[in-house]
Amino acid sequence: MTAKPWTPREGGEADKRHAPATVRNRDAIAAVLADWLPEKGLVLEVASGSGEHVVHFAAAFPGLLWQPSDPDPAALTSIAAWSGEAGLANIALPLPLDAAAPNWPLAAADAVLCINMVHISPWEATAGLLAGAARLLPPGAPLILYGPYVEADVPTAESNLAFDASLRARNPDWGLRDTAAVKEAAAAAGLAFAERRATPANNLMLLFRRT
């Protein structure tokens, strides 16, 4: 049986998901986004999850149009519920988007943002994210990643090692990625690594630009 396609609806209080980490990390992320995002245009957020981040960023950057997305119908409903409650005109209806898919339901974007997906998904999703961003972005436009990573020349925090082990126990295709592997795959897709910034709780923000 073919699954019924998700269609946008407002959603209510019961539909809203809550990710506690969002409240802890959103301001630190926004501080970096202020340096890396364009002043205007469309920002595609891949794997928007609960939708809490996009609401916070849309309020912080009113000159940008924010396009949330997620492959999970329940997440899409949560995003719609949070967005509807916020009542912000610069948040578009969420799109059903699978990062690993060869075709995305969007033709272009001025920036792509992806928070906490790379380690909680198969490598194919990261490869698809890089390829998709390269298709959508104009030259010089940013792809911004946030989350925990492993770096060859930086000791990995014990908490991140434990987190990595727990992820791999849940799904052997998950786990913290080496920044070198992400940079190599990005370069192959047509994205040049531009900057790395450390953020609280042993997370990183990585900036790539379309070549």
Rank of each mutant, 00 (worst) to 15 (best):
T2V: 12
A3S: 12
A3N: 11
W6M: 10
P8A: 15
R9F: 12
E10C: 13
E10I: 14
K16S: 12
K16W: 00
K16L: 09
A19T: 12
P20H: 10
A21S: 15
R24W: 02
A28L: 05
L33I: 05
A34Y: 00
D35I: 01
D35L: 13
L37K: 02
G41R: 06
L42Y: 07
L42H: 09
V43S: 01
E45V: 10
G49W: 00
H53C: 09
H53M: 02
H53K: 06
F61C: 06
F61K: 06
P62L: 04
L64Y: 11
L65G: 09
L65Y: 01
D70V: 06
P71V: 11
P71A: 11
I79T: 05
A80L: 03
A80W: 00
A81Q: 03
G87F: 05
L88S: 05
A89N: 03
N90E: 00
I91L: 11
L93N: 15
P94V: 05
L95C: 01
A100I: 03
A101H: 06
N103I: 14
A109L: 08
V112M: 01
M117F: 04
V118N: 09
S121L: 05
S121F: 02
W123G: 10
E124K: 15
T126F: 04
G128Y: 03
A133Q: 10
R135P: 07
L136H: 08
L136S: 10
P138F: 05
A141H: 10
P142W: 01
I144G: 00
I144N: 01
Y146R: 06
P148R: 09
Y149I: 15
Y149A: 15
Y149M: 15
V150I: 15
D153N: 13
V154G: 00
P155A: 13
P155M: 10
A157V: 12
E158L: 15
A165P: 00
S166T: 13
S166I: 11
A169E: 14
A169H: 06
A169L: 13
P172A: 04
P172Q: 06
D173G: 09
T179A: 03
V182I: 15
E184I: 03
A185K: 07
A187D: 14
A187Q: 13
A189P: 04
A189R: 08
L191M: 04
A194E: 15
A194T: 12
R196Y: 00
A198K: 11
T199E: 04
N202G: 05
N202L: 07
N202P: 00
L204A: 14
L207E: 02
L207V: 00
T211C: 12
